[in-house]
Design a protein around this nucleic acid. Structure first.
Lengths: 191, 191
DNA sequence: ACCTGAACACCGTTCAAGT
DNA sequence: ACCTGAACACCGTTCAAGT
């Protein structure tokens, strides 16, 4: 199968460029935020700007690729937390991890929120896997009676994304808002 | 007092330019979102770009001036709702109005959230008045036992800002998330 | 005192040429 | 098949000149 070999050879090249672009993006976004210069990222990666655009047609595509790492970690965390004794506390811990994961640098949380819209663009495999793992954690908490029976997982995740977006780089504020949303702003009385 | 007269004459000029810039900003932002071209706004207002920068040194300043209208309306609404019978329902209605008011166009909610940071920049008089009126509504709901006694008004408002930011142009989603945050993601059990 | 707008610097994006 | 980077278009911001 000579074509397969040829394809594999090309892929090595392409993959190396992609990996370099991602590493450069992580470094640059982490320093300058999500609105950093794309030309700077291409320069740091040692590729032409056209190559960056070939791999990541939009800034959002590049940001979502950066997010994939965080999603992998969050999916693993969700699966671990499925074994935790208190379903509600496990869900709360996971939502905190989500907020923390998508606030690695300014502007990232807003990108993460895009994948949670009512009519979202097609999302990455990592994002889908993260949501599936989180959904199981959510269902367990709901079955245990820790979450309102009519609540939707995506809405809860989106709420966390909103908190992350407005509390970027303010972990204390993020914690307060998550606690308030968990307990309920209007939950003074019994129900 | 001749100087006072001279000052007043100048102010008329300055105010007219400011009003034109604001009208142009409302129209342009409303059509193109908060990242619309500032040159286009100056052109539409019939002033030079330098005049726009003189009045509004940053884009955020211009957006906050646009927000002032919404804040005036929200302050009035809060004062009216103080007379509503159910304190909790009144607060809920006002938070819905806030979300609706700061989502007039894409990008506005994120600007509104800036004024709610833990260490916010100095905010407009309209914003302060809105927060004071909302705070009274919040205190009433808390005194009535509709809100957790240790909850902070600014955190509740910030939560609404976060919801607004991630659900822009999706009123249904905004309603669902507000309902979820009001009841509490983890409020399945009694308390 | 305020306004103008040319000038500067910078960035996003495309695409013809190259390998 | 992929990469390069010059070229184009556009925008933010400043500031010398004007009123």
């Amino acid at each position: 199968m000579p074509p397969a070999v040829a394809v594999r050879a090309v892929r090595a090249d392409v993959r190396r460029n992609r990996a370099r672009l991602l590493a450069a993006a992580r470094e640059t976004f982490g320093r300058d935020g999500a609105d950093a210069s794309l030309e700077g990222i291409a320069r740091l990666a040692g590729v032409g700007i056209g190559t960056l655009y070939r791999h990541f047609p939009t800034r959002q595509d590049l940001l979502e690729a950066v997010l994939a790492d965080a999603y992998d970690g969050l999916a693993a965390t969700a699966r671990e937390l499925l074994a935790a004794p208190d379903p509600g506390a496990a869900l709360a811990a996971w939502l905190r991890a989500y907020v923390s994961g998508v606030t690695a640098f300014p502007g990232l949380a807003a990108s993460a929120a895009v994948a949670l819209r009512d009519d979202p663009p097609e999302s990455s495999a990592a994002c889908r896997a993260m949501r599936e793992a989180g959904s199981a954690l959510f269902a367990r908490a709901r079955d245990a009676g820790d979450v309102p029976p009519d609540a939707a997982f995506t809405d809860a995740l989106r709420l966390a994304a909103g908190i992350a977006t407005v509390t970027e780089r303010e972990p204390n504020a993020a914690g307060r808002l998550l606690a308030l949303a968990s307990r309920g702003v209007l939950s003074g009385k019994a129900g």
